[in-house]
């Protein structure tokens, strides 16, 4: 299982980014992978959805794409 410290760091980085600008799921995924590169696809998606559940970001469509922000 992924190290929880990396995940906590990834959550902080994603939270800060979402406060600065709206991000698509792909942006968030790439940001996460800079901190937790070694996870499998399934783990990445599972951990990211848990992070997003905790952050509870707003969402809006920009340029026809869903964006999340805080």
């Amino acid at each position: 299982t992924p190290s929880s410290s990396n995940i906590q760091l990834a959550e902080k980085v994603i939270q800060r980014s979402l406060m600065r600008r709206p991000m698509t799921t792909k942006d968030i995924l790439k940001k996460f992978q800079t901190k937790c590169p070694g996870l499998s696809k399934e783990q990445t998606i599972e951990v990211l959805q848990q992070i997003m559940k905790r952050l509870k970001p707003e969402r809006k469509v920009m340029n026809d794409k869903m964006h999340f922000y805080l």
């Binding site: 799921t25 995924l29 696809k41 998606i45 969402r59 999340f68």
Partner: peptide
């Protein structure tokens, strides 16, 4: 590869649509 990122982003978005 970016197509893998696209695929994962789509899967994540589907999960997020369920509850956000």
């Amino acid at each position: 590869s970016s197509s893998e990122a696209d695929e994962m982003a789509a899967a994540l978005e589907a999960e997020l649509n369920d509850f956000i």
